[in-house]
Design a binder for these strands. Sequence first.
DNA 1: TGGGACCATATGGGCGTCAATGGGATTGGC
DNA 2: GCCAATCCCATTGACGCCCATATGGTCCCA
Lengths: 146, 146
Amino acid sequence: MNRFLSNATNRIDAKGRVSVPSAFRSVLSDGGVRELYCFQDFVFPAISVGGPELLDRFERQMAVEDPFSPAANEMSLLVHGGGVFVKLDPEGRLMVTDFIRDFTGISTDVMFVGRGDYFQLWEPQAFQKAQAAAREGRKSRGLRPE
Amino acid sequence: MNRFLSNATNRIDAKGRVSVPSAFRSVLSDGGVRELYCFQDFVFPAISVGGPELLDRFERQMAVEDPFSPAANEMSLLVHGGGVFVKLDPEGRLMVTDFIRDFTGISTDVMFVGRGDYFQLWEPQAFQKAQAAAREGRKSRGLRPE
DNA sequence: TGGGACCATATGGGCGTCAATGGGATTGGC
DNA sequence: GCCAATCCCATTGACGCCCATATGGTCCCA
């Protein structure tokens, strides 16, 4: 498994650190990633996290759009200007900064949510809500695995 | 028999494990599957379980859309983030996590229900009710055999 | 046809390993 | 020289792996 899948919730300790789930760490080390790039999601109250190649991915997307469109402009602002780098400590933990807390509402627990090429940090309750809303929308459109 | 058919109910033990029915296990081992992908059903209070190819099926659906569209984003949230991987122990048991319990209402017994390509985990009573309701709905629509 | 041996599945629990967490020590920047 | 980030080590608690037992059904043979 070389992608970020599934989810897990971990507790923030007294120093403001939280363990990245083991499954996600092995995806990172398989890719030789030591430093992570984080920025705010465009629609959800979540922080997206990935290796430096995540930056490339969004830049490609911006390139296909009109560079002066509001969407591309906004994307650049968030991705280029709003991103931060974080490092993992030897045990695989990261610091939960105010940048993360303020945007997500995270206080005591962090939910790690796999998104395939990258993963996200969520406040657990907020994720439940967003997921329930997404499921409702999907149900009404009738999409099923079959 | 290479598909998941019929149903069976097994008890959860003190450690929160439950045996996957033998018939389902042999379908899995025929396919060389050791790790299972689970997600919440979109309609019923049941967890759907299958091999990784179940995930592939979702991803193919996502691939036809613009990967940056809201619909694809929403679906990734459900499929990548909402799904969970579980492993079977050497005896063919799986852990009944809170993820499963909360969504299905399962507490002491698990009903395994074959659905062809995949199978589902139900709280036994809930399944009886849903099945009865399905019969009623079908009857009121004139008893068409599909 | 009935009883008993046999087999497969389901279930119960001990134990080791590893991930998650907590806290003390050290470094480095302001 | 102080505060905060980083590193290092200890603890614990969950999970995976192993073996033992129970249970129910089937087959064989008397």
